[in-house]
Amino acid sequence: MVSFKSLRYHLILIAFSFVMIYPVIWWLAAVFKPDAEMASANLLPKHPTFNNFTQGWNALSGYSFTHFYLNTFGLIAGVLFTTIVSNSLVAFGFARISFPLRNFWFAIVLITLMLPTQVTLVPQYVMFNHFGWVDTYLPFIVPHALAGGVGGTFFIFLLVQFIRGLPRELDEAAKVDGCSLFGIYWRIVLPLLKPALATVAIFCFLWNWDDFFGHLIYLNSVEKYTVGLALKMFIDSQSSTPWGQLFAMALVSVMPATVLFFFAQRQLVEGIATTGLKG
């Protein structure tokens, strides 16, 4: 039986959740409104239309949004793969092997975790420009391959914490059986690391999807644009903003993150809570 007190409680929470999510609800309704209804106060469209999606998708001359999505997914696939490989190797080294100066280097990992990217931004750009990497995806993929990039040091930290929690007896047993260090990494730790790697992959995907600043400085030609840059171009390209189309395209652009969120909610929330707290 629901008591009066918990009923009141639910009412407060429902009201609060509604206020929080109302802008999103309004957004969901607005994508089906023709332009004439945009400035009216009604939540629901009077003459719902799907045109905003079809027209918005092809609104930019030269390329449709299909192109920008393929670009973004390609970029992120590269980043995800290199992140998983290099960060798991590095984390294994820090968590399971004792070597001279290990604690010193790990302290540096923690310090760089706090370092704002602005300080290295200019020389990195100069360097990548010198290599001819501007307007390619290498300025994103190479740093991730070196356990850096967006969130890189955070992922090392997260994985080290996770590996430290795995029972050491497994390593010892494998060592007795003649397993090499790489064998222990590959056959024992890596399979057990899957849940943590899933968390890393989720954050890596979300943060790179929203790495607007990085995309903005390194990608110049429309052919290489990611979804975020394409949206920005959409805003700038029209003299009077076609809000319906813009909203529709913006909505599609948050779909990958949303789908991911609903499939992996527990992993995501626990990832924030536990790793955040240990920091």
Binding site: G93, F94, S98, F99, R102, L146
Partner: peptide
Amino acid sequence: TSIAGYLFISPWLLGF
């Protein structure tokens, strides 16, 4: 073992 340790963290070290 020390060399192996440095090999494992070498991606990060290089990146750093």
